[in-house]
Simulated scan of single mutants.
Amino acid sequence: MRRLFERHPLIARWFDRPHRSGEILHGRYEIIEELGMGSYGIAYEGRDLHTGRLVVVKQARQTKGEDGRRLLRREADVLARLRHPQIPMLHDLFVERGQPYLVMEYINGETVEDRIFKQEAKYTEQEAFRLLKDVLEIVRHVHAFGIVHRDLRIPNIIWRDGTVVIIDFGLACRIGEPVDFRDDDPLEKRLRRESHPRSDFYALGHFTLFLLYSAYEPTSDEEKSWEEELDLSLNARAILRKMLQLDPPYDNVDELLGDVDQLLAEHNETQSEAL
């Protein structure tokens, strides 16, 4: 049955029956709109009728059975443990009609994709690695609790009032926790979903490349690798190769942050000499 739902998402959506705008859950949380359906959960923008504040309400997908319910409870536990101003705060966890729901802080912001495509922002090497450093400072807090995020994609890194926020801990797990992969899972998925800090670094390597490509102007139609297309310093190239596991990867966030700090320091020194 699970394979049927994976092959036919519209059938799965009918079985999952997402809530509609105006529905009230737990006698308190009004659904405003659906934000998205992920692998194991459905997220909604909602309003807490007791406080008036906007919240995110997340439910486990019924088609995922106990796996979905287990992951939702784990996400709630992770958020309760982390408690960081740049990570959504857990507000509530409840069960209605046998299904668990979590309620967390609503993050009103924009992704770097919004900034690049809507505001035409362009990131230099220095700006891209400065933003990477900001994200890694939060990741260091997460890893210090023995947790790896495993889903640091562009939509899950948000700008709010000039501060970066990491959202969606639905796939977070303990470092070293056994992970089930299918035989046909591509290498990309395995690298992103490994229960090791390097899976977060791998995802952030692609995130950083996305930033750097915002300032890239192609000179031909020939398809080339990022190392050929992007004009990067040797240190930036070395950092990215380790993050993307093309070279022996970083084992911990402090090692990576040390290299990023050194890169930024060298940029500052070069700018000072130019003045």
Rank of each mutant, 00 (worst) to 15 (best):
L4Q: 05
L4S: 11
F5P: 02
R7G: 03
P9M: 03
L10N: 13
R13Q: 15
R13T: 09
R13E: 15
W14M: 14
D16Y: 08
R17G: 01
H19A: 14
G22T: 06
I24W: 03
L25G: 11
L25P: 08
I32G: 04
I32R: 09
S39N: 14
G41Q: 04
G41D: 02
A43I: 04
E45M: 12
G46D: 06
G46Y: 03
D48K: 00
L49I: 03
G52W: 04
K58F: 02
A60H: 09
G68W: 03
L71I: 08
L71V: 14
L71E: 13
R73V: 03
R74C: 03
R74A: 05
A76K: 11
V78W: 07
V78H: 06
R81S: 14
L82C: 05
L82K: 12
H84M: 03
H84P: 03
P85E: 09
P85Y: 09
P88A: 01
P88K: 00
R97I: 06
R97H: 13
G98Y: 05
G98A: 05
Y101E: 04
E105L: 06
E105R: 01
V112H: 06
R115D: 15
I116Y: 03
I116C: 03
F117I: 05
K118Y: 13
Q119I: 01
Q119L: 14
E120S: 13
A121N: 05
K122D: 01
E127H: 06
L132I: 07
K133I: 00
D134L: 12
E137T: 11
E137N: 01
I138F: 01
I138R: 02
V139D: 08
V142H: 10
R150T: 06
P155M: 01
I157V: 12
I157N: 01
W159K: 00
R160G: 01
D161A: 14
T163W: 10
V165Q: 02
I167P: 02
C173Y: 00
R174A: 13
I175F: 02
I175H: 06
G176I: 07
P178W: 02
D180Y: 10
F181E: 05
D185V: 04
D185W: 12
D185R: 10
K189W: 05
R190Q: 12
L191C: 05
E194K: 11
R198S: 15
F201A: 09
H206F: 08
F207I: 02
F207K: 00
F207N: 03
T208Q: 03
L211K: 07
A215E: 12
E217N: 10
K224N: 09
N235E: 15
R237S: 14
R237E: 13
I239Q: 01
L240E: 05
R241Q: 15
K242P: 12
Q245R: 11
Y250F: 11
G258K: 11
D259T: 13
Q262E: 14
E266Y: 06
E266D: 15
